[in-house]
Nucleic acid binder design. Structure first.
Lengths: 356, 356
DNA sequence: TTGTACGCGTTATCAG
DNA sequence: CTGATAACGCGTACAA
């Protein structure tokens, strides 16, 4: 595009040398007040703004970070990314955003273009399998922070939530309401998040002495459509479950759609708990009981930890450790009780009294 | 970070000159098959990957575009941005994403950092007021495409939807159901989108001979909280409306929250139509009747139009014109009829028969 | 067909 | 305090 003014032009206009102009504008070294004025005036007059590309070439710093997540389209990721961006913006960093859709090839591709673009750091949510390239990058090539999921055998600061505990709470809640045929719709196999939520599910059942039935475990691949199918299968069983734990937000949509199409009432016929608590959970029919992750905070933290690495401010050892945030169970109205009325707490001015 | 291999190193290893190596890797000029092999082998051996920064400095092209929208956190924007990213990624462009929160200062700030970073092009959703900087950029400094909203007096390709028509449809729908006290919760004053939706609202009422009442027009600033307050005010009126048209998605949440807290039934007591149709609209209580915009497509188009400018492929005149997409009204269950039963179509196996 | 040399716009060092 | 000057890594006109 039409030539931006350069430092050289500023210097000429100010009647000083290039080096001089650079010094006052960069505010380093020595210069007199009088030349300072000459230079700043000239810069203002020309509307000078430094060329970041040239600077990057010299300093090897781009003030840019790369963010690679699975899909910006879901609530968890948008809020997390917003957290990153807000913090990054304040710190003068730009963020390049990429979606992997949880496909290793996409990850590989974006990772390498990001690396070639000399980003100062990377915040990544790793896809399952094939972490060779990621591990190579982590070998000191570029500062790296993982979010949402870790990678086995990769010691890199990871910001995640306690998925197992979250799932455990959710399923425990269901059990305490009297359910004993509790299904789970799982996420992508081998994705850490998915596995951990499954473990939480299993653990809760075990602790309460409820047998784990294979037929109640259905794959949803974290996708709405797959969850729809999984739910339909659940409904077709001779003894279908009385409750379903759905391991992420998009799958809740699929599950509920199948339930509604099947004429199943929530929570009268089947109870539902979801993982992830989007704003609209309260407005759903019925309001969704869900496990809430502090995704915005996770974004903030991810950037903090990355910046610590970038600026080598790792005086504080904590920036090398993982952080595992506790999710909370938000109880609304999508879970019904299987107990007789006197077993549950008294209702509070609500007609559907014994659903909580 | 630890030194990446440079073209010079490749050249040395291949036993050729720097210029030679550059030619074969850049695939231009002349070179023999034998040197070609030597160079490519050396490059592979060293795991060479070109330094994009250095290249950018030379070519003045960064293969990066800037995207500046109001808030990635809302459904409309995530899907639109996903459209941009998908198309941009395929074309080898990275996208830097910024949120203005509809504040002019933020816009100004991000616009200038984006410009300083020498992005090859910009996709912007302009905030209201203070377009001086944007206009300056549009004066040939950088390829620019506007999304969602235009700027008066700025002739730049703009991808938007027909907000007026969308709002008109929504309100017409309400009127045909027998409503005549229809409120609107508006967006940010002076934002084109907001204004156009208001015009659609007004036009529909006028065409049907229904008077426009100032008290039924409430400001929501496109924000959930403000819509909550606005709705409460509506409810406190001596004669409150029987229907509300809410001009964007986040405000629907606020509106519905206020309605539920106020013990108002939807659609029995008050009908609601929203602008923007997120996936979860179907799962709301009740399922939301809403105006659906093709936001993903808008993102795709925005990038196409930008790329046309960037690569000067503006042989096709169409890339200079605005595109205005038609939204569609999706009718679900949040609007009730005020007509007597024989005026409406027969129900189809649904107990709440005359709500549509 | 190949090598040389310059420039892109900064930053930063070294004489003066 | 100031001016020249050397990188940074790549693209490319020009000479050989």
């Amino acid at each position: 595009m039409a030539g931006r003014p350069t430092l050289k032009q500023v210097a000429e206009r100010a009647g000083v040398s290039l080096g001089m102009a650079g010094r006052v504008l960069g505010n380093y070294g020595y210069f007199s007040d009088i030349t300072k004025k000459k230079v700043t005036d000239a810069a203002r007059a020309l509307n000078y703004t430094p060329n970041v590309i040239a600077r990057s070439l010299r300093t090897r710093l781009t003030k840019t970070i790369g963010v690679l997540i699975s899909d910006i389209t879901t609530f968890f990721w948008t809020t997390l990314v917003r957290g990153i961006q807000d913090k990054a913006g304040k710190a003068g960093y730009s963020v390049i955003l990429c979606n992997s859709d949880d496909e290793s090839e996409n990850e590989q591709l974006y990772l390498s273009t990001l690396f070639e673009r000399n980003v100062d750091g990377l915040i990544v949510s790793p896809t399952p399998h094939n972490h060779s390239y990621l591990k190579k990058l982590a070998r000191g090539l570029v500062p790296l922070v993982l979010v949402d999921r870790g990678v086995k055998g990769l010691r890199v600061p990871t910001i995640k939530s306690d998925n197992q505990a979250g799932a455990y709470e959710a399923v425990k809640h269901l059990i305490e309401l009297g359910h004993d045929r509790i299904a789970i719709i799982t996420g992508i196999p081998d994705v850490e998040t998915s596995e951990e939520r499954f473990v939480g599910y299993r653990q809760a059942l075990q602790d309460k002495g409820i047998p784990i039935r294979k037929t109640l475990i259905r794959q949803g691949h974290f996708q709405k459509d797959q969850a729809f199918i999984a739910t339909q299968e659940l409904l077709r069983m001779k003894r279908s479950p009385s409750a379903i734990f759905v391991s992420n937000e998009p799958m809740v949509s699929g599950c509920i759609l199948a339930l509604k199409e099947g004429g199943v009432r929530i929570p009268e016929d089947i109870s539902v708990v979801g993982f992830d608590d989007p704003v609209w959970a309260s407005y759903m029919d019925p309001p969704l009981t869900a496990v809430s992750q502090p995704s915005y905070t996770m974004g903030i933290l991810a950037f903090d930890y990355l910046l610590a690495q970038i600026s080598n401010n790792v005086i504080d050892k904590k920036y090398l450790e993982d952080v595992i945030l506790k999710p909370t169970l938000v109880i609304r109205k999508s879970c019904g009780s299987r107990l007789t009325d006197h077993d549950v707490q008294p209702a509070q001015g609500n007609s559907k009294s014994h659903y909580c």
